Lab assay of single mutants.
Amino acid sequence: MQIFVKTATGKTITLEVEPSDTIENVKAKIQDKEGIPPDQQRLAFAGKQLEDGRTLSDYNIQKESTLHLALR
């Protein structure tokens, strides 16, 4: 499925993911596309910060959802 990640600079990244993917996997995909190390990424959805060990389906993130990326 496709999801979107909006960066602090307003850029939107499109990612191909599975509901079973962990947040860690998603951060690795962002690193592949943007070169941002996962340990510098903070992802949020619906106002909640997402934890590495959880999956997209844990957070009820569905196709075409938009996550927000902040850098630490």
Results as ranks from 00 to 15, higher is better:
M1V: 06
M1D: 03
Q2K: 14
Q2C: 05
Q2S: 14
Q2M: 10
I3S: 00
I3T: 01
I3G: 00
I3P: 00
F4K: 07
K6T: 12
K6H: 14
K6F: 10
K6R: 15
T7E: 06
T7W: 09
T7I: 09
A8W: 08
T9V: 12
G10Y: 05
K11F: 09
K11E: 08
T12N: 08
T12S: 08
T12R: 11
I13F: 11
I13G: 01
T14D: 08
L15S: 00
L15H: 00
E16C: 04
E16D: 13
V17K: 00
V17Y: 05
E18L: 13
S20F: 11
S20C: 05
T22I: 08
I23D: 01
I23V: 08
E24S: 09
E24I: 14
E24W: 15
E24T: 07
N25K: 11
N25P: 01
V26P: 00
K27I: 02
A28K: 11
A28C: 04
K29W: 05
Q31P: 01
D32A: 15
D32M: 10
K33H: 10
E34R: 05
E34A: 08
G35D: 07
I36Y: 09
I36S: 04
I36V: 07
I36F: 15
I36A: 04
P37R: 06
P37W: 05
P37V: 07
P37Y: 05
P38H: 13
P38G: 09
P38M: 10
Q40G: 06
Q40R: 12
Q40N: 12
Q40C: 05
Q40E: 10
Q41F: 11
Q41I: 10
R42F: 10
R42S: 14
R42H: 08
L43K: 00
L43M: 03
L43F: 03
A44L: 10
A44P: 00
A44D: 11
A44H: 15
A44G: 08
F45H: 09
F45Y: 15
A46F: 08
A46W: 12
G47P: 01
G47L: 04
G47I: 02
K48Q: 06
K48P: 02
K48T: 14
Q49H: 15
Q49W: 15
L50N: 00
L50P: 01
E51K: 09
E51H: 14
E51A: 08
E51W: 05
E51R: 06
D52R: 04
D52Y: 05
D52S: 07
G53V: 10
G53H: 12
G53A: 12
R54K: 13
T55F: 06
T55N: 06
L56E: 00
S57F: 13
S57N: 11
S57R: 09
D58W: 11
Y59D: 02
Y59R: 01
N60V: 05
N60S: 11
I61G: 00
I61L: 03
I61F: 02
Q62G: 13
K63Y: 07
K63H: 13
K63P: 15
K63D: 15
K63V: 08
E64N: 15
E64R: 08
S65I: 04
S65L: 03
T66P: 02
L67Q: 01
H68T: 08
L69V: 05
L69H: 02
A70D: 08
A70K: 12
L71F: 09
L71D: 06
L71V: 13
R72E: 12
R72M: 15
R72F: 11
